[in-house]
Design a protein around this nucleic acid. Structure first.
Lengths: 153, 153
DNA sequence: TGATATTAGTTTAATCATTGAACTATTCAC
DNA sequence: GTGAATAGTTCAATGATTAAACTAATATCA
């Protein structure tokens, strides 16, 4: 297609998503300091919500190789933030949970991240931000389907 | 603040931005294949628009240490994608430009990325996507100011 | 003018993230 | 009960990142 309007939207989207992504990561990283990398923060966040999840599930959610997850989990397990427990019935499976220390560190980091996000989104009026997040969530859904389509083919 | 509505928006935003970011990176990565990493694609894209820019400028735009840029540029210069030219008047400064090969590779990759983005944004109606991008751009601006504020303090 | 600051960029050592391939151990299927 | 599939790990290689020390060039200003 050669609709110039669409081309312009694509350009703007590619540009802005790249910029926001870089800057947001950087601001979050500043909040996390030396306690957690951004990836580790994501992983803690995921396990906290889905306590007892598996590496395979994480690899799916994060769209990475299972060995990448093994590496991240190992680093955090070494620091006593995450615990691995083998399933008694299917001994191939390993369940992931936060330790007390993991929970505590996550809460402290999440507090900072929420304050950061709050300081940002309160610069929008409520309708604007709600509309934005709605579309954003729709986009997440579309990307998810896109992924599944590709695997299905 | 304890406004539960805001808290909900923050939760939704943190979640969705994380998801979209992961999935989008992954889809773009699939398009780029073994030709370029996502970061390298960003760098080519930047230099193409700002031909003759410096490492310092890139480090600013990408919010990373200058040595990170040196490393990325070096890898791509080794592959003949980017050229470094010293300023004649201020011999500390190095200007970055794409080589012919860099230009060509970028165009091929950009073509694929644009097709991907087009297949996604055409699932929204035009008003929706325009509104979304407008807010997104406003967000980019706010993040940028936030960054400058922090440096200023 | 000349000593000192600053600036642009690189190098180095260390760490984290990622992949693909080979591997272990377990369970499933027939 | 043998062969295929599954969950997870290990290993080797590569890329990205940082902080600190460094080189080389330019700016400052006494």
């Amino acid at each position: 297609m050669n609709n110039p309007l669409i081309q312009d939207l694509i350009d703007r989207y590619v540009n802005v998503s790249f910029q926001v992504h870089k800057k947001a990561e950087s601001l979050i990283k500043a909040e996390l300091g030396n306690d957690l990398t951004n990836d580790q923060h994501y992983v803690l966040s995921y396990i906290r919500k889905a306590s007892g999840c598996t590496s395979t599930e994480l690899a799916d959610a994060f769209d990475v190789n299972k060995s990448a997850i093994t590496a991240i989990i190992s680093r955090m397990a070494d620091r006593g933030l995450i615990e691995r427990t083998r399933d008694v019935n299917d001994r191939r499976v390993v369940y992931l949970t936060l330790t007390g220390a993991g929970e505590e560190l996550f809460r402290a980091c999440q507090e900072k991240v929420h304050q950061l996000v709050e300081s940002i989104i309160t610069k929008f009026d409520e309708t604007e931000i709600t509309t934005f997040i709605n579309t954003y969530e729709k986009l997440a859904q579309i990307l998810d389907n896109k992924k599944k389509d590709e695997l299905g083919e």
